[in-house]
Nucleic acid binder design. Sequence first.
DNA 1: CCAATGACTACAA
DNA 2: GTTGTAGCCATTG
Length: 109
Amino acid sequence: MTQSTDFFERVYAVVRQVPYGKVTTYGAIARFLGAAKSARTVGYAMNAAHARADVPAHRVVNRTGLLTGKHHFGGINTMQQLLEAEGHTIVDDQIQNFETVLWQPTRCG
DNA sequence: CCAATGACTACAA
DNA sequence: GTTGTAGCCATTG
């Protein structure tokens, strides 16, 4: 399907590669896709990712590790709880040791 | 087709 | 070091 969803599928493919207990950023995904400046569009794709059960959008946060999109999970605490359930520590909607749990997309595992 | 929106990021003051 | 503005790109109206 070479439709608008194509771009989203690219994002989904990367987000699904995020391992358990790890998180990534919009910029990392955008850059990996070759659209370093489309970070916003990546977040937009996340909004559509709601329809994808295989897309752990809660593992995607902004470059500061802040849960900016927690509002889009139906509950402002849903995203945080999901991350905490994976062993993350969140304070003030911000992931602690963010760089420690940060994961970056790779072409080979 | 034009205008507005958005889960971002980088630069400047 | 904090706050504000600008740029960017894809989607939607």
